[in-house]
Protein backbone atom coordinates (compact mmCIF):
# COMPACT_ATOMS: atom_id res chain seq x y z
CA UNK A 1 0.00 0.00 0.00
CA UNK A 2 1.22 3.49 -0.86
CA UNK A 3 2.45 5.75 1.92
CA UNK A 4 -0.28 7.73 3.64
CA UNK A 5 -0.67 11.41 2.67
CA UNK A 6 -1.25 12.51 6.22
CA UNK A 7 -0.30 10.79 9.45
CA UNK A 8 -1.14 11.85 12.98
CA UNK A 9 0.88 10.09 15.66
CA UNK A 10 -0.29 10.27 19.26
CA UNK A 11 -1.46 13.85 18.95
CA UNK A 12 -2.41 15.44 22.28
CA UNK A 13 -3.68 18.87 23.22
CA UNK A 14 -5.06 20.24 26.47
CA UNK A 15 -6.63 23.54 27.39
CA UNK A 16 -5.61 23.76 31.05
CA UNK A 17 -7.27 20.72 32.69
CA UNK A 18 -9.39 19.81 29.69
CA UNK A 19 -7.77 17.23 27.41
CA UNK A 20 -9.42 18.00 24.07
CA UNK A 21 -7.19 15.76 22.00
CA UNK A 22 -5.94 12.54 23.59
CA UNK A 23 -3.24 10.57 21.81
CA UNK A 24 -5.03 10.60 18.48
CA UNK A 25 -3.36 8.55 15.75
CA UNK A 26 -4.78 8.25 12.26
CA UNK A 27 -3.67 8.27 8.67
CA UNK A 28 -5.14 9.23 5.35
CA UNK A 29 -4.30 7.09 2.35
CA UNK A 30 -3.88 8.41 -1.17
CA UNK A 31 -7.23 8.92 -2.83
CA UNK A 32 -9.40 8.08 0.13
CA UNK A 33 -12.09 10.11 1.78
CA UNK A 34 -11.60 9.69 5.48
CA UNK A 35 -14.47 10.97 7.58
CA UNK A 36 -14.07 12.12 11.15
CA UNK A 37 -17.27 12.01 13.16
CA UNK A 38 -18.09 12.49 16.80
CA UNK A 39 -20.68 14.12 19.04
CA UNK A 40 -20.57 17.85 19.75
CA UNK A 41 -17.64 18.73 21.96
CA UNK A 42 -15.67 15.64 20.91
CA UNK A 43 -12.80 17.90 19.84
CA UNK A 44 -13.17 17.63 16.07
CA UNK A 45 -12.57 21.30 15.35
CA UNK A 46 -9.55 21.42 17.68
CA UNK A 47 -8.10 18.43 15.84
CA UNK A 48 -8.68 20.10 12.46
CA UNK A 49 -6.98 23.26 13.71
CA UNK A 50 -3.94 21.21 14.68
CA UNK A 51 -3.85 19.46 11.32
CA UNK A 52 -4.12 22.82 9.52
CA UNK A 53 -1.38 24.33 11.69
CA UNK A 54 -3.49 27.00 13.37
CA UNK A 55 -3.05 25.32 16.76
CA UNK A 56 0.13 23.69 18.10
CA UNK A 57 -0.32 20.25 19.66
CA UNK A 58 1.19 19.70 23.12
CA UNK A 59 2.77 16.49 21.91
CA UNK A 60 2.68 14.14 18.97
CA UNK A 61 3.80 14.29 15.35
CA UNK A 62 1.98 15.37 12.19
CA UNK A 63 3.46 14.16 8.92
CA UNK A 64 2.22 15.41 5.60
CA UNK A 65 3.41 14.48 2.11
CA UNK A 66 6.32 12.56 3.56
CA UNK A 67 7.66 15.18 5.94
CA UNK A 68 7.23 16.20 9.54
CA UNK A 69 5.15 19.39 9.50
CA UNK A 70 4.45 19.62 13.24
CA UNK A 71 6.48 22.82 13.57
CA UNK A 72 5.17 24.50 10.41
CA UNK A 73 2.53 27.26 10.40
CA UNK A 74 -0.69 27.47 8.41
CA UNK A 75 0.79 29.17 5.34
CA UNK A 76 3.75 26.78 5.08
CA UNK A 77 1.50 23.72 5.29
CA UNK A 78 -0.84 25.23 2.72
CA UNK A 79 2.08 25.69 0.35
CA UNK A 80 2.88 22.00 0.75
CA UNK A 81 -0.63 21.26 -0.50
CA UNK A 82 -2.75 21.02 2.62
CA UNK A 83 -5.89 22.95 1.80
CA UNK A 84 -8.50 23.79 4.39
CA UNK A 85 -12.11 24.59 3.71
CA UNK A 86 -13.44 26.37 6.76
CA UNK A 87 -16.46 25.50 8.84
CA UNK A 88 -17.76 29.03 8.45
CA UNK A 89 -17.45 30.03 4.82
CA UNK A 90 -14.29 32.01 4.58
CA UNK A 91 -14.07 34.12 1.47
CA UNK A 92 -13.46 37.83 0.93
CA UNK A 93 -17.01 39.15 0.84
CA UNK A 94 -16.23 42.42 -0.92
CA UNK A 95 -14.45 40.68 -3.80
CA UNK A 96 -16.33 38.97 -6.60
CA UNK A 97 -16.29 35.19 -6.92
CA UNK A 98 -13.81 35.52 -9.77
CA UNK A 99 -11.55 37.81 -7.75
CA UNK A 100 -11.61 35.39 -4.84
CA UNK A 101 -10.35 32.58 -7.06
CA UNK A 102 -7.71 34.88 -8.59
CA UNK A 103 -6.56 35.71 -5.06
CA UNK A 104 -6.31 31.99 -4.33
CA UNK A 105 -4.22 31.33 -7.45
CA UNK A 106 -1.82 34.19 -6.69
CA UNK A 107 -1.54 33.40 -2.98
CA UNK A 108 -0.77 29.77 -3.80
CA UNK A 109 2.43 30.98 -5.40
CA UNK A 110 1.68 32.55 -8.78
CA UNK A 111 3.71 35.75 -8.38
CA UNK A 112 2.30 37.18 -5.15
CA UNK A 113 5.06 39.81 -5.02
CA UNK A 114 4.64 41.11 -8.58
CA UNK A 115 4.12 44.86 -8.63
CA UNK A 116 4.01 45.64 -12.33
CA UNK A 117 0.84 44.78 -14.18
CA UNK A 118 -2.75 45.07 -13.03
CA UNK A 119 -3.66 41.83 -11.30
CA UNK A 120 -7.38 41.80 -12.06
CA UNK A 121 -6.90 42.58 -15.75
CA UNK A 122 -4.52 39.64 -16.30
CA UNK A 123 -6.18 37.58 -19.04
CA UNK A 124 -4.34 34.35 -18.22
CA UNK A 125 -5.22 34.61 -14.57
CA UNK A 126 -8.86 35.38 -15.33
CA UNK A 127 -9.08 32.39 -17.63
CA UNK A 128 -7.68 30.08 -14.97
CA UNK A 129 -10.12 31.49 -12.42
CA UNK A 130 -13.08 31.11 -14.78
CA UNK A 131 -12.13 27.48 -15.34
CA UNK A 132 -11.96 26.88 -11.59
CA UNK A 133 -15.43 28.42 -11.11
CA UNK A 134 -16.77 26.38 -14.01
CA UNK A 135 -15.55 23.20 -12.34
CA UNK A 136 -17.71 23.84 -9.27
CA UNK A 137 -20.73 25.05 -11.22
CA UNK A 138 -20.32 28.75 -10.52
CA UNK A 139 -19.56 29.84 -14.09
CA UNK A 140 -22.57 32.15 -14.20
CA UNK A 141 -21.81 33.78 -10.85
CA UNK A 142 -18.25 34.91 -11.53
CA UNK A 143 -18.91 38.64 -11.24
CA UNK A 144 -21.16 38.48 -8.19
CA UNK A 145 -19.69 39.75 -4.91
CA UNK A 146 -18.92 36.77 -2.68
CA UNK A 147 -21.05 38.27 0.09
CA UNK A 148 -24.09 38.18 -2.23
CA UNK A 149 -23.73 34.47 -3.01
CA UNK A 150 -26.06 31.94 -1.41
CA UNK A 151 -24.55 29.91 1.39
CA UNK A 152 -24.08 26.79 -0.72
CA UNK A 153 -22.54 28.84 -3.51
CA UNK A 154 -20.03 30.31 -1.09
CA UNK A 155 -19.05 26.81 -0.05
CA UNK A 156 -18.61 25.87 -3.69
CA UNK A 157 -16.54 29.02 -4.17
CA UNK A 158 -14.35 28.04 -1.28
CA UNK A 159 -13.89 24.64 -2.82
CA UNK A 160 -12.90 26.29 -6.11
CA UNK A 161 -10.34 28.40 -4.22
CA UNK A 162 -8.96 25.30 -2.55
CA UNK A 163 -8.72 23.45 -5.86
CA UNK A 164 -6.84 26.41 -7.34
CA UNK A 165 -4.06 25.56 -4.89
CA UNK A 166 -3.63 22.12 -6.50
CA UNK A 167 -4.00 20.54 -3.07
CA UNK A 168 -2.59 17.16 -2.07
CA UNK A 169 -5.16 16.93 0.71
CA UNK A 170 -8.47 18.67 1.31
CA UNK A 171 -9.36 19.37 4.90
CA UNK A 172 -13.12 19.82 4.91
CA UNK A 173 -14.59 21.18 8.11
CA UNK A 174 -18.31 20.42 8.04
CA UNK A 175 -18.88 21.36 4.40
CA UNK A 176 -22.59 20.54 4.62
CA UNK A 177 -23.26 22.66 7.71
CA UNK A 178 -26.06 25.11 7.09
CA UNK A 179 -26.71 24.10 3.50
CA UNK A 180 -30.17 23.29 2.27
CA UNK A 181 -31.18 19.91 0.83
CA UNK A 182 -30.51 20.79 -2.82
CA UNK A 183 -27.33 22.71 -2.04
CA UNK A 184 -25.98 19.88 0.09
CA UNK A 185 -26.79 17.45 -2.68
CA UNK A 186 -24.82 19.55 -5.16
CA UNK A 187 -21.83 19.86 -2.81
CA UNK A 188 -21.82 16.13 -2.15
CA UNK A 189 -21.84 15.63 -5.91
CA UNK A 190 -18.83 17.91 -6.27
CA UNK A 191 -16.92 16.02 -3.61
CA UNK A 192 -17.86 12.69 -5.15
CA UNK A 193 -16.50 13.90 -8.46
CA UNK A 194 -13.17 14.63 -6.77
CA UNK A 195 -13.10 11.31 -4.97
CA UNK A 196 -10.12 9.19 -5.88
CA UNK A 197 -8.17 12.16 -7.22
CA UNK A 198 -7.69 14.21 -4.07
CA UNK A 199 -7.66 12.61 -0.63
CA UNK A 200 -9.90 14.30 1.91
CA UNK A 201 -10.28 14.49 5.63
CA UNK A 202 -13.96 15.15 6.01
CA UNK A 203 -15.36 16.39 9.30
CA UNK A 204 -19.10 16.12 9.03
CA UNK A 205 -22.24 15.96 11.12
CA UNK A 206 -24.54 14.81 8.39
CA UNK A 207 -24.41 11.00 8.55
CA UNK A 208 -25.99 10.45 5.14
CA UNK A 209 -23.13 12.37 3.59
CA UNK A 210 -20.53 10.57 5.65
CA UNK A 211 -21.74 7.09 4.76
CA UNK A 212 -22.19 8.05 1.14
CA UNK A 213 -18.76 9.60 0.63
CA UNK A 214 -16.33 8.05 3.06
CA UNK A 215 -14.04 5.10 2.47
CA UNK A 216 -13.16 4.95 6.14
CA UNK A 217 -14.65 6.56 9.20
CA UNK A 218 -12.92 7.52 12.43
CA UNK A 219 -14.97 8.20 15.53
CA UNK A 220 -13.79 10.78 18.04
CA UNK A 221 -15.32 10.66 21.50
CA UNK A 222 -14.22 13.03 24.27
CA UNK A 223 -10.99 13.81 22.46
CA UNK A 224 -9.91 10.20 21.96
CA UNK A 225 -10.24 8.06 18.88
CA UNK A 226 -12.85 5.37 19.63
CA UNK A 227 -12.42 3.46 16.39
CA UNK A 228 -11.48 3.63 12.74
CA UNK A 229 -13.03 1.38 10.15
CA UNK A 230 -15.20 0.95 7.10
CA UNK A 231 -18.50 2.87 7.25
CA UNK A 232 -20.56 -0.30 7.70
CA UNK A 233 -18.40 -1.56 10.56
CA UNK A 234 -18.62 1.80 12.30
CA UNK A 235 -22.34 1.96 11.80
CA UNK A 236 -22.75 -1.45 13.45
CA UNK A 237 -20.34 -0.90 16.32
CA UNK A 238 -22.27 -1.00 19.60
CA UNK A 239 -19.92 1.41 21.37
CA UNK A 240 -20.31 3.99 18.63
CA UNK A 241 -24.06 3.50 18.57
CA UNK A 242 -24.28 4.08 22.27
CA UNK A 243 -22.00 7.09 22.38
CA UNK A 244 -23.03 8.83 19.28
CA UNK A 245 -25.33 7.38 16.72
CA UNK A 246 -27.88 6.55 19.36
CA UNK A 247 -28.50 10.24 19.71
CA UNK A 248 -29.87 10.29 16.24
CA UNK A 249 -32.61 7.78 15.42
CA UNK A 250 -32.38 8.65 11.75
CA UNK A 251 -29.25 6.58 11.36
Amino acid sequence: MADPVLTLERLSKSFSALAVTQAVSLDIRPGEIHALIGPNGAGKTTLVAQVAGALKPDSGVISFAGRDVTALGVAARARLGLSRVFQISNVVGGFTALENVMVAIIAAGDGPFRMGRRALADAGLREQAHAALDAVGLAGRALVAAAQLAHGERRALELAMSLAQHPRLLLLDEPMAGTGKAEGERLAGLLLALKGRIPMLLIEHDMDTVFRLADRVSVLISGALAMTGAPEAVRRDPLVRAAYLGEDEAV
Binding site: A52, A78, F86, V91, V92, A107, A108, M161
Partner: peptide, 12 residues
Protein backbone atom coordinates in the same frame (compact mmCIF):
# COMPACT_ATOMS: atom_id res chain seq x y z
CA UNK B 1 -9.92 41.70 4.66
CA UNK B 2 -9.27 38.14 5.74
CA UNK B 3 -5.88 37.26 7.14
CA UNK B 4 -6.81 33.72 8.19
CA UNK B 5 -7.99 32.87 4.70
CA UNK B 6 -4.86 34.27 3.06
CA UNK B 7 -2.73 32.08 5.30
CA UNK B 8 -4.89 29.06 4.56
CA UNK B 9 -4.25 29.79 0.89
CA UNK B 10 -0.52 29.55 1.56
CA UNK B 11 0.53 33.18 1.97
CA UNK B 12 1.71 34.70 5.22
Amino acid sequence: ENEAKLEALGLD
